[in-house]
Nucleic acid binder design. Structure first.
Lengths: 203, 203
DNA sequence: GGTCATTAATGACCATAGTCATATTTAAGC
DNA sequence: GCTTAAATATGACTATGGTCATTAATGACC
């Protein structure tokens, strides 16, 4: 790696690190780009050479977080528990991982949607953020398929609809938890709902 | 109503109407407060006498939209169809109503969350937006209760968990629909998922 | 180790949301 | 209809995200 590339990486990392710290300390809105660049010892314009907007930083936080999560999940999926258990483990693991850093997660969640919108203009990054949801759904669908093959799950159900429904439950629990100031457990709530979806409501 | 109050109401309405039109025409971000006030024939400061921020306008759009929806729903709830049908009608009616104005709805959805965050500071308006979700959930729970009494729904399920699950499905369908550019039907998708939750996934 | 093209850093500058001291309008009391 | 206090309107001003023409650093090539 050339000197140039090394310096570049260093600057990028420094911006990333300082931003993260400031966002956690003072919140996203209350942190200015001026502060970040000042603390990083760079000019304001330099910031925008590395990140197109202040909000785009959140996208990168999100990516690094999700990569971590997917890695954790890889191991879990290899077991041969029943499909239902695997799905529960999958989603509850996500939940537990998120529970570790509510503050930053809230920012990602609440701020990042406008990014998705804004990036609608740029066709090249269209599904950042939504793309990962599809990835989640796809994993769940595969697990459900296993379940059908093992006879744990009704054959006649539409797997796409079912996996989306489970993802819906996951996402909704996440949302409720983020809105709540109390420390209700996200993973516990989620767990109950997954059970319900498996069992069904109707008599 | 005094002259003063009448003028005030007129100004408020004019801002509201012009904003709505401009937002639909050019999008939320591409519409400036300057434009709005110019077209309304008022000074910039006046705008902020009526609405604390540009984004807060969306809150009022949302309110007026939801009031409409709740009114429509009132009649539906009075019928004596089976609980499942009522819930489906309830949610699908919401869906159909939303399908009429995707553009503005998207703005409300994507922009409004940061409002919720920001209003976290102001304790007086804490649950605008989230409050209505609780209202939805509460209506669904009442309908489920009817269902239990009529024997259409399993007695042992936790009604809170169940109503939240149905709301989750509703919300998720809404989200998927808003992310999609194609004209997949929101209400059709939702309908399938509600059926699934009633039936259950597990064998 | 000097030249030059490429890449990155810079900060003055712009656009726009939001503030606030001041000016104007309204209406109540006389 | 005059006086005055309260409500409302105003626009110059501030704060901040983002742009871009200019300057500085780098490294490939001779």
């Amino acid at each position: 790696m050339s000197l140039r590339e090394k310096k570049k990486q260093e600057t990028r990392d420094r911006i990333f690190e300082i931003s993260g710290r400031l966002f956690r300390e003072k919140g996203f809105e209350n942190t200015t780009v001026d502060e970040i660049t000042q603390e990083a010892g760079i000019a304001k314009g330099t910031f925008f050479n590395y990140f197109p907007t202040k909000e785009s930083l959140l996208l990168y936080f999100r990516e690094s977080k999700e990569e971590l999560v997917f890695n954790i999940l890889g191991s879990q999926m290899a077991t041969n528990a029943p499909a239902k258990e695997k799905i529960k483990n999958f989603l509850v693991l996500l939940a537990e991982n998120y529970e570790k850093d509510k503050a930053l997660l809230r920012m990602l969640f609440f701020e990042h949607r406008r990014l998705v919108m804004a990036s609608g203009q740029h066709p090249d990054r269209k599904q950042h953020g939504h793309g990962n949801q599809l990835r989640f759904i796809s994993i769940i669908r595969d697990l459900l398929k296993e379940g059908v093959e093992n006879g744990e799950i009704k054959e006649r159900i539409d797997l796409q609809v079912a996996s989306e429904t489970l993802h819906a439950v996951y996402f909704h629990s996440l949302m409720m938890w983020m809105h709540s100031d109390t420390d209700n457990s996200f993973s516990r709530d989620l767990s109950a709902k997954i059970d319900l979806v498996f069992e069904g409501i109707g008599e």
